[in-house]
Structures are given as C-alpha cells and as structure tokens.
Write a protein that binds this DNA or RNA. Sequence first.
DNA 1: ACATTTTTAGGAACGCGTTCCATTATTGCA
DNA 2: TGCAATAATGGAACGCGTTCCTAAAAATGT
Lengths: 213, 213
Amino acid sequence: MATITKKKQRGRPAQSAAKKEEIRAKIVSVSKELFINEGFENISIRKIAQQAGCIPRTIYYYFENKRELLHYLWVDIFKTLSSECERAIKSLEAPLEIIHVIYTTYVNYWLAHRDQYRVIFMIEDLNATSNHDTAVLDMIKSSAKFIRIFEKAINDCIQNKVFKEKNTNRVVQVFFLSAHGLASGIITMREMKWENPDALIKSTLNALITGLE
Amino acid sequence: MATITKKKQRGRPAQSAAKKEEIRAKIVSVSKELFINEGFENISIRKIAQQAGCIPRTIYYYFENKRELLHYLWVDIFKTLSSECERAIKSLEAPLEIIHVIYTTYVNYWLAHRDQYRVIFMIEDLNATSNHDTAVLDMIKSSAKFIRIFEKAINDCIQNKVFKEKNTNRVVQVFFLSAHGLASGIITMREMKWENPDALIKSTLNALITGLE
DNA sequence: ACATTTTTAGGAACGCGTTCCATTATTGCA
DNA sequence: TGCAATAATGGAACGCGTTCCTAAAAATGT
C-alpha cells in the first residue's frame, strides 16, 4: 500500500494511517490489559506508556487526553454489558419483560463492576464540546446490541399503546436516566444507608412502567 | 475557658478544641470564598493554603483529605438548594404538589449550578468507609429543611394511601435516585443528545407518581 | 553537502492531591 | 539545665494528567 497520501512536500513525511492505527491499537491494547489486571486506580498514562514502550508525551500525540483513550475500554465494557443483557433476555419476547430484564441487568452490572462504572462516568472532560464524544457514542451504540433491543422494546410498547407517552426517545431516556441514577447514587454515595438495591430497582422500575402505562 | 483537656503530660500540648475549630473554620471560610470566586476547577489545596496563610501539609493536619474539607461547602450548597425548594413550595400544602415541586427544583438546581454538582458528586474518596461521611450527611440533613419536608410529604402520601408502597424510606430513595440520575446524566454525559430537560423531568416524575399511586 | 521544513518523539516541567521526613515549639522529667 | 516526648508546622517528594520546549528523524530545496 502506498504510504504517501499527499503531494511530495518538504519535511518528515507523516505516518500512514495504517501505521497510526497500529500505534493507537497497541496503546489501547495495553490500556485494556492494565485496566483488567490492576483496575481503575492503577490505570495511569505513565504506566500505559511504559508498557506500550513509549513515553507519556507520545500518548498525547495520538490521543486528545486520557478520557479519549479510555473510550476504547468503554466499547469493550458495553459489549460485555450487552452480552449479559442479551443472555438475560434470551428466551423473552414480550417487550415489557425485555424492558424489565434489561433495566435490571444494566443497573446490577454497574453495581457489580464499580471500577468499570468509574472509568466511564467518573472521569469528566470539562473542556470537551458536546460533539466531541459523538464518535464514541456511535461506537458504543453500534457494538452494544442491548441498546437497540431496549429501544425497540420501548417502541413496540408505544406502538401497541402499552405506553401512553408517544415519544420513543424520551421514554428511552427516562428509563436510562433513572437506571443510571440508581447505579450512580449507590456507587458514589456510600455514606447513604441505601435500601436493598434489588428492592430499589424493582420499586423504581415497577413505578415507571405502571406510570407510563 | 480552661484549655487543658488532659492531665499534664510531656511534650507540646495539643491545641484546644476551640483553637482547632478556629483554624478549621478559617480554612473552610477561605475554601468557600475560593469556590465562589473561582469555581470548581480552581479550588485547590495549594490555593486554599496560600489564602489561609498556611501550607498544604497543614490542611492535611486538620482534614482527612480534600473531600472532607469540601464537606463544608456541601452544607452551604444544600442550604441554598433548600432555600430555593422552600421558596418554591411556599404556599403549597398538598403533599403530592410538594413532592412535585421539590423534585423539579432539586434537578433544576443542579442543572443550573453544575460546578456545585461536581464539587459534591464528582470527587470520590475511594478509601472512605461507609461510616466515614455519616457526619456530613447528618450536617446536611439537619440544615437542609427540604429533605425533611420531602420525606414528610412522601410519608403523608403513604399514610393517606395515595401511594401503595408503604416503605417511606424506600419511596424517598426511589424519588431521590431518579432525580439524581436526571441531574447526573445530563451534566456528565454531554455527548448524549438529551431531550429537553424539563420534559424529561416531567415525564419521569409523572410516571413515578402515577406508578406509585 | 548543507539548510530548511515538517513530523514524531524525548525530557522536563507544570499544578494537582497527598504523604514523607525533618524541624520547631512546648511541655515534663531527671 | 539538658534531654525526652509530643504536637504542630515546614519543605520536599511522590505519582498523577497534561503541556512546554527541544531534539531527532526524514523528507525536499538550493
């Protein structure tokens, strides 16, 4: 494959897209291993660089910041989450049951994998613009089937007049944000004496479904 | 006031409780000013120490960590939030209306004061035990009237059989966690294309209330 | 052959939260 | 009076995420 992608010009030629991708893939691969082996607290730019055989500065040459690098872990995490959701709804067909099971599996997944929750939701990029992470969202949506299954189940409920609310996107977000609140609150506010999480999930979900019917 | 709180013993006498409290209050006061004047990103231990006329090490002598220091900002923030809630429900008496208005005011407050949200919910102490922050929770609960008003309104609804669920604490937490999810998700997941927050709040709250009735 | 230009990588620095080791202050004991 | 003991403070260090300034690599132009 020809590597020159521009007219000949002075100066050191830029790396080919393939080469760039190879280096990025290496760094991402090492990041994933580090996260799996040593967890959230020990995944640092310096350690990643060391294991990738480069220096921290190099990582900032290929990635905007740590959060962009961690995007690739997000995709893996959401794939695993999706597998669990897909397994949990394996023999279900009723949309309400699918909603029920995916919602519950989603919250329980974060409660069971708190470091994974943190690596996604507790590292904020204050300088990012809204369109900044659209790419990662698209990656997640395209690889995590459970999101589309969940959206379809909600849409089916709306089409079948199970739900009075007609705006699919809004209903999806209502469910998603309440599930996220359960996970977020229970994980990060440890000083609160929470009721049994299973009971909280069940009460919230039943109330939402009943209220939307 | 006698300052010796122990039998005479060798070594430098410890500061009196009053003196300790004075120093802590000074540091807290400076922290609040810095947060108000320069916001979340610029409230650092070094800057606080500088303005308090001490060094960072001193802050760690009087406070466990940065998060414990920020607890005192939390109390102020929750007091302000409570004032807004109390103002919003000023002439209301119906418990359901009170729940409605407090819930909405609570979410909107965080959406309107995102730095205040971050200073409370985005700085996690991974080494803390559950009982670690119980003191701050008590401080918040005793100074933020809206929490008790909210709990009472929910309890009234349960007593009046408006809600089928009989566990007041659970219902309170269901409302709280869903409100928190709305704020948390909208603030920290900027890459998502959210529906209008007012609509999300309204749909979620109406669904919860209807579902609990 | 050397200078210039452009890209990629390197070393060090920045400010952060936090901790380590040392110093100073202040007491009682021998 | 000097030493030991205890508390409070000090300076520096640690590792973090990130950026700055510089160097090396690799090309073209003169």
